[in-house]
Nucleic acid binder design. Structure first.
Length: 960
RNA sequence: GGGCGAGUGGCGGAAUUGGUAUACGCGACGGACUUAAAAUCCGUUGGUCUUAACAACCUUGAGGGUUCAAGUCCCUCCUUGCCCACCA
C-alpha cells in the first residue's frame, strides 16, 4: 500500500490546478456570483507565519465551498506594495524599493501557492505598479475636483523616526502605528481628504452592515458624533469666546470657563498681571510630550487669565482659565465649566477653589400619577471609630422593593428634618446618641411605592449625615410591616456606594461623603425660569432662547478629523498636482497620468519635512497645464491607505487600461460578499475604503454605497507559549517549515481551522499538528485499503443503511457548519464519521456496495479544507475531473429518520434513566414505559407524581 | 473612565438556542503488532468517597433568582482579553 506522502502529492496538484486554470473567475458565466476576499497583504521582508495564514485558509475554504455549491467565485490576491515597511526594508538592505517588493511578493506568492489556496492569479494586483497607481492618482484628482482634497498648513503628527507625517488614525496612544516610536507635532502644509463631510453617512450606514459589533462600535467611537450646542460668551474686553457643550441645560451652573493653552484668543484675553504666569504655563504645556498630555490620571493643572466672561443666561461674571485638559483640536477649544455636573470640571474646581453651583437634581423611580407628595429624609449613620456606614438590608432587590438602603422615612408635618432623621434612626436602628454632621443643600426626587402604607409616594429626599457618639442602642420601634423585614449591616464607605440599591440614596450619599458631582439627567434648579423643568427639555429650550440673540446654536461635533494623506517619503504614489505661481495647485491632466515615480539613488528621508523627490529637479520642474509657464510638481506621495481604498474594485476588472474599472463588471461582482481579515484595520483601511466607495457612488461610478457586505474578523494565532508571534521573540511558526517536516499543507490547513472557532484567539499547538496529520492519514489508509480490497474481490452487493445514515448525517452537519463558518465542528463531525467508517470496515471489510459512495462523498466534504489529499484520492477512485469542480453533496432526509429514539427520564429534573422507544410511539405509552423503568421506578416509589412533562423526542420529567 | 467580548476536564474546545454537560482533538494510561522502538490499530480517561466494582453525591469563575428543568435567561460580584481614552 502506498503511504500518505504530502510532499509528493501537493506540489503535483498545485501545478495541475495552475495549468488548468480551474480557479479563474468567469465574468460572463450565468452562474450566481460570489466575491470572497481576504485583506491583500503587505509584502514585508518577513515571511508569513501560521497566524497570517489562518485568514487565507478561512477564505479559501469558503471560496471552495461556494465553488462546489454551484457559484462562480471570484477569489483574488494582490499586494499592498507601497508604504513605509517596504521602503525601510529597502534602505536597510541597500536595494531599491522596487527590487525589495519584487523579492518579497515572490516569496509571499510562493508561500500562498504551497498552501494550495485557490486564487485566480490572473487578476493579481501590485499597488506599486504604474498601471495600478495611475488610477489611484486618477481617484485623487476625482476627490480634488469634487473639493474633497485640499491643502492646509497645520500642526500634525510627525514621526521623527519614519520622518513623515501621519494621519490621526495612524497614531496609537501617542506612538507611530508602524515603528512604535513617540510622535511629535509639527506644522506643515499638507494634503487632506475631507472624510468629515461623510461622517454622518459613514456612521448611519453602519447599521445595515453584517459586521461584528466590535468593529462597528470602534468605527462609531472613532467618528464620535456628539450633538450639542455652541454658545457665545462675551468677554469683558469685547471679544467673544465660543464654547461647545453637549449639556446646554447646565448653562446656569457654568461657574468658570477654560480655554486650551493653544486657543487663539488666549493672548488677547490675558491680563497684564497674569501674563507671565500664563506664558509660563503655555511654555510648560508645549514642552510636555503628547504622550504625557494624554495621561488621563494626571492631576489637573491650569492658570487664571485675569479676564472674565459673561454667562449669557444669567449675566454672571465668570473667570476665564487656561488648562491643558481642554483640547485645542476638539469642538471650539474652549469649554464652559460646570463643576457640579462634569467630573473633570469638578476636579478642577476643587483643586483651584472655584465655585460649584448645582443646577440639576436627580429623579428616581417612575411617576404613577396618584402620588402623595411629601418631604423625606435619608440618614447616613457613620461610626467614626470604624469608619463604617450603617445600611438596612431589605433582602434581595426585586423590582421596586428590597435591596440595601440607608435609613429613610417621611417628614411629619411641621417636623424639623434633623429631628425627623434622629427619630427615624432611633425607630429603625435603636441608635440614639448621634451627632448631626451635615445636610445636603440639594434633594433627590423619588417616586416610589410604600409596601407598608400601600401607597404611591413622590418625595423630596434630603440627605443627612450623622456620626455615632457611642454605641448605645434602645429597642427598635418598628411598624408591623417593617418587623423582621430588614437587618442592620455595617459596611465601609466604598462598599456603601456600590451596594446601595436606590439612585436617590446613592446621590445623597455622594453629596455628603463622595464626589458631589452628578452628571445624569434630572430636574432643573437654580436656573431661573427653567426651575422644575426636566433637564432633557431644558436643553432644547435654552438653546432656542440663545438662538434668538444669536448667542447660541445647535451644533454636531465629530472626533474624527480629515484624513491627512501626504507622506514625505519616496515609496508611494506621487500626488498628481502641479504648483503654478499663477494658478496655484493644478491637477495633472488625465492624459499625463501616471505621474511616475522617478528612479533615484537615495531613498533616505531628509527629515526636513520634504520628500526625497524634492531633490530630483527633473521630476520637480515642469510646466503649468493651464498657462504653460514654469511650475513645480508636488513632491509628497500618498498614504498607502489610498491604494488600498479601492483595490477590491480593481479585481473585478484588473487589466482595464482605459479606466480604473468598467462599471458593468464592478456592479456584477461587488460588493464583496465575504471580506476576511483581522480587526486591526477597524478605523483605518475599513473606514477609508467605505469613504472612497461613497465618493464613487456619488459620482455615479458604481451602484452601491458599501464595499463589504459581510466582514469576518478572524482571531489571532498566538505562539504555543501564549505570546504574540514575532520574529524578535523567535517564537514564530511558519507553514513552510511544517510542510518541510512532512505534515503537508493539508494538515496545516486542518489545524488552522480545527484549532478553535475561526474568530477567536488561539494558541498554536505543536502536538495538535500530529492530530491533524493522523486524521488525514486515516482517510488515506481507509481509501487505499478499500481500493486494494475492491480489486481483490467483488462486493456483496448488499447495502448498509448504517453507512448511508452516517454519511448523510455528516453531509447535513458539514453543510450547515460551513454556512455558519463553524469549521472546527465541521471537521470534528468528519473525524467522528471517519471513526465510524473504521468500525463499519472492521465488520464487513468493504463488502457493502455503499463504500464507493461513502468514501467519495466523504472526500467531497473534506475537499474545501484539505484540497490536495482529497483530489489525489478522488482521482485514484477513478474520476477524471477535479473534485473541486464536483457538485457539493446533498443529504437525503430519508436516511436521517430513525426507527427508534432514546428518551431521557428525569425525576425532579435529575437524570435517572433512559429508554429506547419506537419513533412513532404516542406520548402516553412513552410515559408509562418510562414509569415502569427499573431505575426510575425506585425513585417514584411511595411518592405522588404531581406533574409529568414530556418533551417530544427528548425526555420525560416526573415531578414528585 | 467608556465601549465590545470571554470564563466549561490536565490542555484546545463541543453542547441543534432552556431539555442526556464535557462531542472532536491533544495529552496521559493500558493493550495488540514488533527482537526493540517509531508508526499504526484497539481500549480507558471530569471530580469526591471506595482496594476494586456497584451505587451515590458533586461539577460549566463566585453568589443569588426565575423554571418541572439553567453552561444557556435575569440580578450582583470577581477575573481576564481587545479597542478607545481629559472628545466637554
Amino acid at each position: 500500500m502506498q503511504r500518505y506522502n504530502p510532499k509528493d502529492i501537493e506540489p503535483r496538484w498545485q501545478k495541475i490546478w495552475n495549468d488548468s486554470k480551474i480557479y479563474q473567475a468567469d465574468d460572463d458565466s450565468l452562474k450566481p456570483k460570489k466575491y470572497i476576499l481576504e485583506y491583500f497583504p503587505y509584502p514585508s521582508g518577513a515571511t508569513m507565519h501560521v497566524g497570517h495564514v489562518r485568514n487565507y485558509t478561512i477564505g479559501d475554504s469558503i471560496a471552495r465551498f461556494y465553488r462546489m455549491s454551484g457559484y462562480n467565485v471570484l477569489h483574488p490576491m494582490g499586494w499592498d506594495a507601497f508604504g513605509l515597511p517596504a521602503e525601510n526594508y529597502a534602505i536597510k538592505n541597500h536595494v531599491s524599493p522596487r527590487k525589495a517588493i519584487d523579492d518579497n511578493t515572490g516569496r509571499f506568492r510562493e508561500q500562498l501557492m504551497q498552501m494550495g489556496f485557490s486564487y485566480d492569479w490572473s487578476r493579481e494586483i501590485d499597488s506599486s505598479d504604474p498601471n495600478y497607481y495611475r488610477w489611484t492618482q486618477w481617484f485623487f484628482l476625482l476627490l480634488f475636483k469634487k473639493g474633497l482634497a485640499y491643502q492646509q498648513e497645520s500642526l500634525q503628527w510627525w514621526c521623527p523616526v519614519d520622518k513623515t507625517v501621519l494621519a490621526n488614525e495612524q497614531v496609537e496612544a501617542g506612538k507611530c502605528w508602524r515603528c512604535g516610536n513617540s510622535v511629535e507635532k509639527k506644522s506643515l502644509k499638507q494634503w487632506f481628504f475631507k472624510i468629515t463631510d461623510y461622517a454622518d453617512r459613514l456612521l448611519d450606514d453602519l447599521d445595515d452592515l453584517d459586521w461584528s459589533d466590535a468593529i462597528k462600535a470602534m468605527q462609531r467611537n472613532w467618528i464620535g458624533r456628539s450633538n450639542g450646542a455652541v454658545i457665545k460668551f462675551q468677554v469683558e474686553k469685547s471679544q467673544v469666546v465660543e464654547v461647545f457643550t453637549t449639556r446646554p441645560d447646565t448653562l446656569f451652573g457654568a461657574t468658570f470657563m477654560v480655554l486650551a493653552p493653544e486657543h487663539p484668543l488666549v493672548k488677547s484675553i490675558t491680563s497684564d498681571i497674569q501674563k507671565s504666569e500664563v506664558e509660563a504655563y503655555i511654555k510648560a504645556a508645549q514642552a510636555k510630550s503628547d504622550v504625557e498630555r494624554q495621561e488621563t490620571d494626571r492631576e489637573k493643572t491650569g492658570v487664571f487669565t485675569g479676564s472674565y466672561a459673561i454667562n449669557p443666561v444669567n449675566k454672571a461674571k465668570i473667570p476665564i482659565w487656561i488648562a491643558d485638559y481642554v483640547l485645542s483640536g476638539y469642538g471650539t477649544g474652549a469649554i464652559m465649566a460646570v463643576p457640579a455636573h462634569d467630573d473633570r470640571d469638578y476636579e478642577f474646581a476643587k483643586k483651584f477653589n472655584l465655585p460649584i453651583t448645582t443646577v440639576i437634581e436627580p429623579v428616581s423611580g417612575q411617576e404613577q400619577g396618584d402620588e402623595v407628595r411629601k418631604q423625606a429624609i435619608v440618614a447616613i449613620v457613620r461610626n467614626p471609630k470604624t469608619n463604617q456606614i450603617l445600611m438596612l438590608d431589605w433582602g434581595p432587590r426585586q423590582d421596586r422593593f428590597g435591596g440595601k438602603l440607608f435609613v429613610g422615612g417621611g417628614v411629619d408635618e411641621a417636623e424639623d428634618i434633623v429631628d425627623c432623621a434622629r427619630r427615624e434612626i432611633a425607630e429603625e436602628t435603636g441608635y440614639t446618641n448621634l451627632k448631626h454632621v451635615a445636610t445636603t443643600d440639594t434633594v433627590a426626587h423619588g417616586y416610589y411605592f410604600s409596601n407598608v402604607k400601600n401607597k404611591n409616594y413622590y418625595a423630596k429626599m434630603h440627605g443627612l449625615l450623622f456620626d455615632l457618639i457611642d454605641e448605645t442602642q434602645v429597642d427598635q420601634q418598628l411598624d408591623e410591616g417593617e418587623k423582621n423585614k430588614f437587618k442592620i449591616t455595617w459596611v465601609d464607605q466604598l462598599s456603601a456606594e456600590n451596594l446601595v440599591d436606590d439612585d436617590g440614596h446613592r446621590y445623597l450619599f455622594n453629596a455628603l461623603l463622595g464626589n458631589g458631582c452628578y452628571s445624569g439627567e434630572g430636574l432643573m434648579i437654580n436656573s431661573g425660569q427653567y426651575d422644575g423643568t426636566a433637564s432633557s427639555e431644558a436643553r432644547e429650550k435654552i438653546v432656542a432662547e440663545l438662538a434668538e440673540t444669536s448667542s447660541g446654536q445647535i451644533v454636531t461635533n465629530y472626533k474624527m478629523r480629515d484624513w491627512l494623506i501626504s507622506r514625505q517619503r519616496y515609496w508611494g504614489a506621487p500626488i498628481p498636482i502641479i504648483h503654478c505661481p499663477k494658478h496655484g495647485a493644478v491637477a495633472v491632466p488625465d492624459d499625463q497620468l501616471p505621474v511616475k515615480l522617478p528612479e533615484i539613488d537615495s531613498y533616505e528621508p531628509s527629515g526636513d519635512g520634504r520628500s526625497p523627490l524634492a531633490k530630483v529637479s527633473e521630476f520637480v520642474n515642469t510646466v503649468c497645464p493651464q498657462c504653460g509657464g514654469p511650475a513645480e510638481r508636488e513632491t509628497d506621495t500618498m498614504d498607502g491607505f489610498a491604494c488600498s481604498s479601492w483595490y477590491f474594485l480593481r479585481f473585478a476588472d484588473t487589466h482595464n487600461d482605459q479606466s480604473p474599472f468598467s462599471k458593468a463588471k464592478v456592479d456584477e461582482w461587488l460588493p464583496v460578499d465575504d471580506y476576511i481579515g483581522g480587526a486591526e484595520h477597524a478605523v483605518m483601511h475599513l473606514l477609508y475604503a467605505r469613504f472612497w466607495t461613497k465618493v464613487m457612488y456619488d459620482d455615479k461610478l458604481i451602484d452601491f454605497q458599501e464595499p463589504f457586505t459581510t466582514l469576518r474578523n478572524q482571531g489571532m494565532i498566538l505562539a504555543p507559549d501564549g505570546n504574540k508571534m514575532s520574529k524578535s521573540k523567535g517564537n514564530t511558526i511558519e507553514p513552510g517549515g511544517l510542510i518541510d517536516q512532512g505534515y503537508g499543507a493539508d494538515s496545516v490547513r486542518i489545524m488552522e481551522l480545527f484549532i478553535g472557532p475561526w474568530n477567536q484567539t488561539a494558541a498554536w499547538s505543536v502536538e495538535g499538528m500530529g492530530g491533524a496529520y493522523r486524521f488525514l492519514n486515516r482517510i488515506w489508509t481507509l481509501t487505499q485499503e478499500y481500493l486494494e480490497t475492491k480489486s481483490n474481490k467483488a462486493t456483496t452487493g448488499e447495502s448498509n443503511d448504517d453507512i448511508r445514515r452516517a454519511v448523510h448525517f455528516t453531509i447535513k452537519k458539514v453543510s450547515e457548519d460551513l454556512n455558519s463558518l463553524s469549521f472546527n465542528t465541521a471537521i470534528a463531525a468528519e473525524m467522528e464519521t471517519l471513526n465510524q467508517l473504521y468500525k463499519f470496515k472492521a465488520k464487513d471489510n468493504y463488502a457493502s456496495q455503499d463504500w464507493a459512495w461513502a468514501i467519495e462523498t466523504f472526500l467531497q466534504l473534506l475537499a474545501p479544507f484539505a484540497p490536495h489529499i482529497t483530489e489525489e484520492l478522488w482521482q485514484a477512485l477513478g474520476h477524471q475531473t477535479s473534485i473541486h469542480s464536483s457538485q457539493w453533496p446533498v443529504h437525503d432526509d430519508k436516511y436521517l429518520i430513525q426507527d427508534s429514539m432514546t428518551i431521557v427520564i428525569q425525576v425532579n429534573g435529575k437524570l435517572r434513566g433512559e429508554i429506547s422507544v419506537p419513533t412513532n410511539q404516542p406520548e402516553a405509552e412513552i410515559v408509562s414505559t418510562a414509569k415502569a423503568n427499573d431505575k426510575v421506578s425506585s425513585y417514584l416509589e411511595a411518592k405522588e407524581i404531581r406533574k409529568t412533562i414530556y418533551i417530544s423526542n427528548k425526555l420525560v420529567n416526573f415531578v414528585v
